[in-house]
Amino acid sequence: MVDSTGLKLCGSGEWLEEKHDNKRRRAWRMLHLGIDADAGRIVVSALTDRDVDDGSQVGPLLDQVDGPVPSVTGDGAYDRTASRL
């Protein structure tokens, strides 16, 4: 199973920025995870910029796996044809 989540990167000065109403653009990254559904553990991961689409990460995630992968399950964001992987 593959999925992703957004991560907001915060520095030590975020509290001061909020206190003084200093609006700075926050840094975001996407964490893509591959999980062994039988074992319930994370087996592969990739950290990308927020503008990288989920579907483009299936190939790099599968490249991290040693051995065969019998099936891959993910939401619609990971739905791509084999020619686009």
Rank of each mutant, 00 (worst) to 15 (best):
R26L: 09
D75W: 12
V58L: 15
V65P: 01
K19V: 05
V44K: 02
L7K: 07
D79Q: 11
V52K: 11
C10V: 14
I35M: 11
S12K: 10
S83E: 13
A46F: 01
R26D: 07
V69M: 05
R84D: 10
T81A: 08
V69H: 04
T5S: 12
P70V: 13
K19R: 14
L7R: 06
L9Q: 07
V65C: 04
M1I: 05
R84N: 11
T5F: 09
D38S: 02
C10E: 15
I35Q: 02
T48K: 12
D53V: 13
R26A: 10
L47T: 13
D53N: 15
T48R: 14
D51C: 09
K23P: 00
T48E: 14
G67R: 07
L62V: 11
V58W: 04
L61Q: 08
H20E: 09
V69D: 06
L61K: 11
G13R: 08
T81E: 06
E18Y: 03
R26Q: 11
L31S: 04
S56F: 01
S45G: 05
D21R: 13
P68K: 09
R26C: 02
L9I: 15
A82V: 10
L47S: 05
T48A: 10
G40C: 04
A77G: 15
G59D: 11
A39F: 01
T5E: 01
D66L: 08
S83I: 12
R25K: 15
L33I: 15
V69I: 13
D66A: 14
V43M: 07
D49K: 15
H20V: 00
